[in-house]
Nucleic acid binder design. Sequence first.
DNA 1: AAAGAATACAACCGCCGCTTC
DNA 2: AGAAGCGGCGGTTGTATTCTT
Length: 316
Amino acid sequence: MGRQPCCDKVGLKKGPWTAEEDMKLINFILTNGQCCWRAVPKLAGLLRCGKSCRLRWTNYLRPDLKRGILSEDEEKMVIDLHAKLGNRWSKIASHLPGRTDNEIKNQWNTHIKKNLKKMGIDPITHKPLSNANEQTQTQPDQQTHQPFEKQHQQQSLPINKDPKYESDSNHNKESETSTESSTIIDAIEEDKTVTPLFDSMEIIMNEFCIDEVPMIESNKILVPYTPSTSTSTTSSSSSNSTNFIEDFLLQDFELSHMHNGNENNNSSMALWDEDFMRSWDLLIKDDDSRKEVFDCSLSQYPRIVVDSESWDYGLF
DNA sequence: AAAGAATACAACCGCCGCTTC
DNA sequence: AGAAGCGGCGGTTGTATTCTT
């Protein structure tokens, strides 16, 4: 009955992944694509369970990941989405291309939650903290009711000087005694003006609505176009000729880029971005033997334009 | 400079819904 | 039909790094 177990978990390695393990996994997936995760560790020669491999790939090794802390815009989106979706990190992550649920979850727990609390907002309910809490804390209420600019200077949040917001601010001041029981979520869902207690949150919410966030399909993901004769940002980070990934991939993305007919779109997310290229480059540089393995696999690898289907189904 | 505290984040664990046998 | 695996998800933990005293 049923299937064979994923792994017997006996003799399997746990803990941090080594560079060598990463190499094996990358090498395997580049060669074979994403297939049955249960089979991956065996085929790739890893003493890990399939689940661990999947996690490592999706959260860390995947080439379309952005690394580093969330931008202000991304942070706003996360707050907005969290207000709507709660702790459904994967759903939230799906609106932030290049970000993983794990990453967003970590950012939420370490940064965003703290910031919201500082602003006097309950990160769970997205409502203002209760009066009782406010009294016991260092005047969070006052902070919440400070003018937008002051608040955002303190919180390092962007200040929107659009007159629209100023008028909203005035409007809010006028209606300061109006109902404060409605929630931000309600406001979003009903597309209402947020009540004054949510001044700070209003700024956050104003610019972002998940319905407006375009989902980026992988066949539309671009890297900055760099003619082979010029110095690219990527090559600047790894200027020697051993950056085989760059050599391997850039032409493909040039094709993709040409396909989209926009040679100057440097703001688009890079599928193989600088950090990622650098990290792989470093990974490979530290061991020539690994490079050989990698070179081999990549040379086997036909030039392709990654589209959404092939990426999703591991076909490349 | 050293020790302890705080922070950041990768990785694991266990649960759940769907699929497979 | 139902037992059991698979993939995915969210919560939690462990550890490395950074900051503070």
